[in-house]
């Protein structure tokens, strides 16, 4: 199942399949490690519903749902 990153829920794991094509915005996120093929896990969503904490490449990063919406993830069940 392929989903937009912003729609992922707490505890979901998956692999990034597409990153938005070149913009500074997307490039910055890719440079944080969100490139196709990267495994990610949603650790937690902040109490107010946004942002979310992601586990990737052995570290934890907090990103906003809306700013990640262009990234697509193949969700592992």
């Amino acid at each position: 199942m392929i989903t937009s990153f912003g729609d992922l829920k707490k505890g979901m794991c998956g692999t990034i399949v597409t990153a938005p094509s070149d913009s500074d915005h997307s490039k910055r996120l890719q440079e944080m490690g969100f490139v196709p093929g990267t495994e990610i896990r949603i650790v937690k969503v902040a109490p107010l519903g946004d942002p979310m904490e992601v586990d990737l490449r052995g570290y934890r990063l907090c990103v906003r749902k809306q700013e990640m919406s262009g990234f697509e993830v193949e969700v592992l069940s």
Partner: peptide, 11 residues
């Protein structure tokens, strides 16, 4: 200046 996506490391 461009608005950057908000990324925050949780070390």
């Amino acid at each position: 200046g461009k608005r950057l996506p908000f990324v925050l490391e949780l070390p």
